[in-house]
Design a protein around this nucleic acid. Structure first.
Lengths: 248, 248
DNA sequence: GGAATAGTGTCTGTTAGACACTATCTC
DNA sequence: GAGATAGTGTCTAACAGACACTATTCC
């Protein structure tokens, strides 16, 4: 039998129904804290519980496209937002994770600089940026696990990629970059050493030859401004100070 | 409406049919070369083409379970093979990647020490270990992309995890471990420096206080034997010599 | 004996991290 | 002026990589 004959006789409905969704763990930094985007579910199952934004993948839709669309619907951020980074996190498919049917969720992580307050989505769900350490202990489905995995991804990607530049504006100071690391890692870093280290990694940042308009709010000189460089990997990497303890 | 009422009225068949498969990129080292497990498709679509082992996820089956089952069916390796490492690689869902219907494939990577020749699977497909540099230029579906992604995963995981110990037997010499790195990275490493480095990473290997029965085939003293240690991350990491060139 | 290999010693340049210090700015 | 911050200098311990060397074993 050739492919054409085979396809003509193939009946997709003969198999038990499954569904594929995308869920997005969107991170941003607000008021010096790492925030995650959550929505309150407006319909069953788990009506009223907080959950990750997400939804079913359209029939002709690519996975990254679906993730960008769902995120845009929740945040009002244009799909082609310039400084948005979106990457696949993993797929969650435990048989009983959704009571409706067998649902596989392809999770994405998104990183963005301080975004506006989310608009209520088209399906009228309440949406909000929630500081990570104030997030509900229990989220719908297995979303707590997905958020934890997304955080771990963010923490480790800061080490060996220029991901931190996605959390700040087009132009930024080294101190702002350091604040990103300190916020996501939850540790304070030595300002002087961090400064020298960042500048020593080829392609991490490049100078704009400009400075901030004013010094720090509580004093200090004007800081030089940088923009993201062309490196895709940091070499040498910036390792978390607490890495050694998590090795075993 | 509460969850119970909602679920009673929910019809999964109302949505367009999609399917979820698992595909496995299984790596092993044979005759000093990195091999990948491929099967020749026995039925349409792409009948006769080489492809990754894999198949549809059972209705009550977990994703890792499905991956282990598919791999076992192709290789004859017991599902609970002691020294097999299996991890999720990513999900591939381009709308037209399978002509039958919308198919999402959750890819897994498997690493194992020299495995026996695969037995033909229950569905009578021909299966074989194929050296990576002799693999067909074109595989069925988007499997060439998946293999490339799997290789990249293997290469980078060698750097910062004890993955290499999954490619060797229960007890191994430092030279065997070095051969794994050289094979996967495709670069020769300095024997003396590698030796000292491996022993200096806490928890990477632990001594068995025994040596090989004989020296090397072409001379040399008996080598000490080691087994895998309890480290989950290598600190400091073993970086690929060519890392710097791939940074941009 | 000759050749190959296991494992160690030593040296150099680079890096991480600690500490100190100066210059600049806000209040 | 007081206090905070940006950015640099310097020192030490650790590390990567190059090279050399010894000891052991196979052929």
């Amino acid at each position: 039998m050739n492919d054409a004959d085979f396809l003509a006789s193939y009946d997709p409905h003969a198999y038990p129904p499954v569904a594929v969704t995308v869920d997005i763990v969107a991170f941003t930094i607000r008021n010096g804290a790492l925030n995650v985007l959550l929505v309150r579910r407006a319909c069953p199952p788990s009506e009223g519980m907080w959950a990750l934004p997400g939804g079913f993948v359209g029939q002709w839709e690519d996975l990254p496209t679906a993730a960008a669309r769902e995120l845009a619907e929740e945040t009002g951020v244009a799909t082609a937002h310039r400084r948005l980074h979106l990457e696949q996190l993993g797929t969650y498919g435990t048989p009983d994770r959704d009571p409706r049917m067998r649902v596989f969720s392809v999770a994405y992580v998104a990183f963005a600089p301080d975004l506006p307050d989310p608009v209520s989505g088209s399906d009228a769900r309440e949406a909000a940026w929630v500081p990570m350490d104030e997030r509900p202990a229990e989220l719908a489905f297995d979303h707590s696990t997905i958020v934890a995995d997304g955080l771990e991804r963010a923490r480790s990607k800061l080490e060996y990629t220029p991901l931190a530049t996605k959390f700040v504006g087009e132009e930024f100071t080294i101190a702002e970059l350091r604040a990103v690391y300190e916020t996501v890692w939850g540790e304070s870093l030595h300002a002087g050493n961090f400064h020298r280290k960042v500048l020593s990694v080829p392609g991490f940042v490049e100078s704009t030859n400009t400075t901030t308009e004013r010094g720090g709010a509580r004093g200090g000189p004007r800081a030089k401004l940088y923009r993201a460089g062309d490196a895709r990997l940091l070499h040498p990497a910036l390792l978390m100070p607490s890495r050694e303890e998590t090795v075993r």
